[in-house]
Design a protein around this nucleic acid. Sequence first.
DNA 1: CGTCTTGTTCGATGGTCATCGAACGACGTG
DNA 2: CACGTCGTTCGATGACCATCGAACAAGACG
Lengths: 105, 105
Amino acid sequence: MATLDHPDLEDLDLVTVLQALGDPVRLEIVRQIAASGERACGTFDLGISKATRSHHLRLLREAGVTRTVPEGTRRIVSLREEDLEARFPGLLSSVLAGAPPVVSR
Amino acid sequence: MATLDHPDLEDLDLVTVLQALGDPVRLEIVRQIAASGERACGTFDLGISKATRSHHLRLLREAGVTRTVPEGTRRIVSLREEDLEARFPGLLSSVLAGAPPVVSR
DNA sequence: CGTCTTGTTCGATGGTCATCGAACGACGTG
DNA sequence: CACGTCGTTCGATGACCATCGAACAAGACG
């Protein structure tokens, strides 16, 4: 079972992280993960297509914001909270505090 | 002397702020302002043209990250530190802590 | 194996963004 | 007023981004 590529902690780049978070869809993904600890790809309530969801999840993983682990046919996504806190203390918590839940569609 | 438009504190939007900060040029602008408190437009050391500088400064102002005040022929730019702290506590300070100064060109 | 489920990638599309030179506008000064 | 300084806007350009349907890939199961 292959693992997916994730950047090392010291390779996390602030601009890349901010770019990844500076999108309403990706911010909502991060919020929904934070609310439940981890999520399978198919459990996000986003109102976008599977292809677009894959696109955004890949950007979050490549920016180092999330960790994705294959589990059978599913992919489990979690936040790299400790890595992000170590690298940019306070960033993730202040972003999550500032991101209100999206009103249900 | 006309003042420039700035969004009200309660209109500051997290995604817009993150998008504004998620660019190496704009992040460097914010860092240089933070280092000196305020700056005139012409005093930034950025390595880009005047037109591009105006473009980026307008985005930062419209996102509510900076305040721009005309002073004669010059425009003085400062960070809306208190507004940003009130609206997104800890965001600006963690971004500034995570943004190393750009190596001199 | 064949089928189903989950998720990714491809390629296309339309829109957005960062860049700049040239031209313009506002202010200050003599 | 004319000129100089500072900064903005216009329009063009090339690159990038978000979107999706269709096709594909991997794992699980019978």
